[in-house]
Amino acid sequence: MTFSVNHPILFVLAGIIIAVVLAQSVFFLVMAWRRGIKMGMDKKKLKRVAISAAVFTIAPAIAIIISVATLSKDLGIPLPWLRLSVVGSQSYETIAASNTMEAMGNSLGSGVALNATQYVTVALVMTISIMVGIWLVPVVAKKMQSGMITMEKRDKKWADIFSASMFVGMIAAFLGFVFCDVSSVFSGDMTGLIPVLVMLVSALCMCLSGLLVKVFKARWISDYALPVSLVLGMASAIPITAWLS
């Protein structure tokens, strides 16, 4: 059988694996939903969370399709489709593929089609190098959760602060990242301000949403505040980039 990076069999193989991963998500969704109902949680509340999560996901998911399109030029469609539907990212897959191709005396993006040996080697490196989380979570999650519960029993207030601190710590890192190119302004390059202004637009949209919820007492607005702010922030990047570039 002649190999091609877009061979129909590769689509079938990737499709089967993605179907299993999809089944895992459905399984956990049903399990959590049933648990919520059993606990007496309002069905409407659960639905609101589900709808909001779905709406929020659309823009980042489109960005993932763009990554699939970019990677598909060298690797075909099935492998990027598989890798970006499971744990993976454009930057990681590009690095893994480039490192492997260079080790085989080739380079990614050279325009030469991959043969089956190169393809299998690249896929193996991609799979092995990012497998840690998938097996480590089953090993440590229960113990870590027990630790959290013990901490909560010992000191409820500190457990709440601990949880909030973790979220704040993560957000602080990304807020810092937004400013990483800002020093370029001192050399006359204003593009470093683009992410900062986009962040401010998005934050402003979120504040306005909060204000609208209070003024009109329309709680439903808060369900869509994050996805709408995200999309408006992203949209603002187009004129801001044109202005500052």
Binding site: I18, V21, L22, S25, V26, F28, L29, M31, A32, W33, R35, G36, M39, M41, L46, V49, A50, S52, A53, A54, F56, T57, I58, P60, A61, I62, I64, I65, V68, A69, I77, W81, L84, S85, M148, E152, A159, D160, S163, F167
Partner: peptide, 29 residues
């Protein structure tokens, strides 16, 4: 997040997000 309700809601949000992402990528492909 460390409450019983929080566990349920974060699982629902993440599961829905995973399903929607997978379906949108399928559509994109």
């Amino acid at each position: 997040g460390n409450s019983d309700e929080g566990e349920v809601l974060s699982t629902i949000a993440i599961a829905v997000s995973s399903i929607v992402t997978t379906l949108i990528i399928v559509l994109g492909v």
